[in-house]
Amino acid sequence: MLFSKILRTGLATEPLGDSSDKFIELVRKTEAEIQRHLGRALAIREVDAGSCNGCEIEISGLTGPVYDSERFGIHFVASPRHADMLLVTGPVTRNMEVPLLKTYDATPAPKLVVAVGDCAKHCGVFKGSYAIIGSVDQVIPVDVFVLGCPPEPTDILNGILAALDRRPHKK
């Protein structure tokens, strides 16, 4: 039973391909940086401030079987109270302005904010809509913008790395 299942089911995970080496290097670097800065896993709270969910798919790709961010110390948490970093996507809609401010307020200092996607920087196709306030940095201070529509997981990882460097050093 078990063996026939193994035989019949195809490969669930494919190799990364050409960029494999570069990616592995990036992962090693991220792991080392997180270890150096925090001495534990980096806790991230994701906030969808009004995105089309394209960025979310890429972010969840980061936690999927290919990248599997948990193994090198990136941990998505369920409350800003537990978070070191906010990952904000999309333009900020009118409905999400207060929740975003509250989330920022609830995150313990020192806090980092990474705005993911083109919309977070200049509102993308939603620019000028009556439903939005504007870009993320118009509402809360942003440390790093990750551009792309949507950005790939490696781009997001680079953004997280860049933000970590802005974190005040221990001692």
Partner: peptide, 12 residues
């Protein structure tokens, strides 16, 4: 110390 609201899932 920094005083802020209880976290209530961002509700207004």
């Amino acid at each position: 110390l920094r005083v802020s609201d209880s976290w209530g899932c961002g509700r207004a």
